[in-house]
């Protein structure tokens, strides 16, 4: 398994982390990538924000 991946691959892993349990290697790939890539770090924050938004959306009542 290749350790250094492109943003495109890492972005997909970050997304999949919301939907399945990643392997230890996959988690390490994300951590290693975060050291060198600010854009993917922002994507991580956005993915977690979107999850929270959907919770708020589901609880929204007026």
């Amino acid at each position: 398994m290749k350790f250094l991946r492109t943003c495109r691959e890492v972005a997909a892993l970050v997304s999949e982390r919301e939907d399945r349990a990643l392997s230890a290697t996959e988690r390490a790939v994300i951590r290693a990538h975060a050291f060198i890539c600010r854009r993917c770090t922002k994507w991580e924050a956005q993915v977690s924000f979107m999850r929270k938004s959907m919770k708020a959306w589901g609880n929204y009542r007026d």
Binding site: E9, R39, C40, W43, Q46, S53, A56, W57, D62
Partner: peptide, 30 residues
């Protein structure tokens, strides 16, 4: 993404996440 796999263009900062989640207008945009 560009062909070598990087994000195309700049990615964005999303300020005030907590405040945003409490906004009714934001939930309508969602």
């Amino acid at each position: 993404f560009v062909p070598d796999g990087h994000f195309r263009g700049d990615t964005y900062d999303w300020p005030n996440p907590e405040q945003t989640l409490n906004s009714k207008q934001f939930l309508e945009v969602l």
